[in-house]
Design a binder for these strands. Structure first.
Lengths: 210, 210
DNA sequence: ATGAAACTTGACCGCAGGGTCAAGTTAGTT
DNA sequence: AACTAACTTGACCCTGCGGTCAAGTTTCAT
């Protein structure tokens, strides 16, 4: 790779990182190129697809954030507190960091490293859920697949709540968490959990679009 | 108004009603014109704006559905059952009827009659919420404004769940409802309720778009 | 310092959506 | 039947997105 191309790639990565974090992973590629001070043709030359760019620019950030949260959750003495912490922090991130929010609420099959991070995150989530259930705190009919519901509903609220009420999502999550305690479970759930395949499908449709 | 214009307006109303119910209130106006077998210019002549068309075509339908649900809820002996019925039916509609779903999850300030229906619906909701709280069943820190959370989160799940899992939203609502019972309330909610103005604002941003 | 390979550029294409308007057509009044 | 006001039409404009490529420029090995 020639030195000038290297420099441009770097400028593009920087611009992409900025814009992804400001506005999410859907920002127009041409805008990224504009901010990098480079033609959009160059962006296509150097990265080819949006997902390739995402994979290079967002993966490490997402991994760091997600692992941090999972560790924090597992570090809680109390299993329920750990679970609640995990949910709350994930949701806080959705409200706070558009880039990672899109990672959590989307599908990027082309971004291999990112997909690996998602896999590891899912494992961590499983452990946190199971620990809370083993402690008898989290209702046993909850499954890891139900996390899409939590994150899906939070994502729309976090996005809809502008500067006016940036904490509104916390109220919703508080209601939901109260419904997830073992004692809160009233009658059997009306339908069974999603299959992992269904979760994957749902995640593809979460981010609006219509 | 000339007879042919009258006929065209009727064809457009019919096509709009169909498409709105099939795909929601965002269908391209040109597509409505196409289905009506009429030029899109004519649509703009006769209705001017999308909201005017919505107001003529969707209002009565929405009013009927929403009033029916509210009546059903108030007809329940048990106040909690009434509240739960109300939530469930609203959510079922969001999953089932894209047109009314968009009414419930959107803002159409230009559609006067429709706005009136929304006002009446809100009144009914207030009554249902208060009745359940007076009976001691619904947690007292819940407010009518919190309904946006319920409907907002449900809308995204209902939309994301294709034919594959058309009932998935029920699971989420079941968790949430369990969290709304008085006994489920654990600690005080982390933040206060939205103001009505904030609710109005949030509703404007609910329907994806980005 | 020169030539070939690497790279950049921006005009261009396609698509989809909203919206306008001059020209042509039709209804219905006289 | 003739005439005018009402109405319809579709070509046209705009915006914004993704994406491509011939022509021009720059790097770097020789």
């Amino acid at each position: 790779m020639r030195a000038d191309a290297q420099r441009n790639a770097e400028k593009l990565r920087a611009a992409a990182a900025e814009l992804f974090r400001e506005r999410g992973l859907h920002v127009p590629l041409k805008e990224i190129a504009r901010r990098a001070g480079v033609s959009h043709g160059t962006l296509y030359n150097l990265f080819g697809t949006r997902e390739a760019l995402i994979d290079e620019v967002v993966t490490d950030l997402a991994a760091e954030r997600l692992e941090e949260i999972a560790e924090g959750a597992l570090a809680c003495e109390d299993a329920w507190e750990g679970f609640a912490y995990y949910i709350e922090q994930l949701c806080r991130m959705q409200a706070t960091d558009p880039a990672v929010a899109d990672v959590v609420g989307g599908r990027y099959p082309g971004a291999e490293r990112l997909m690996a991070v998602c896999g590891r995150t899912l494992d961590a989530a499983k452990r946190i859920v199971e620990r809370a259930q083993d402690a008898g705190a989290l209702r046993p009919d909850f499954t890891t697949e139900d996390l899409v519901f939590v994150l899906g509903s939070n994502s729309v609220l976090a996005r809809a709540t502008p500067r006016t009420a940036p904490d509104a999502w916390r109220r919703n999550i508080a209601f939901l968490l109260d419904g997830l305690r073992t004692e809160a479970a009233h009658r059997p759930l009306p339908v069974g959990p999603l299959t992992p395949d269904q979760v994957y499908e749902v995640m593809g449709n979460l981010t609006g679009e219509r």
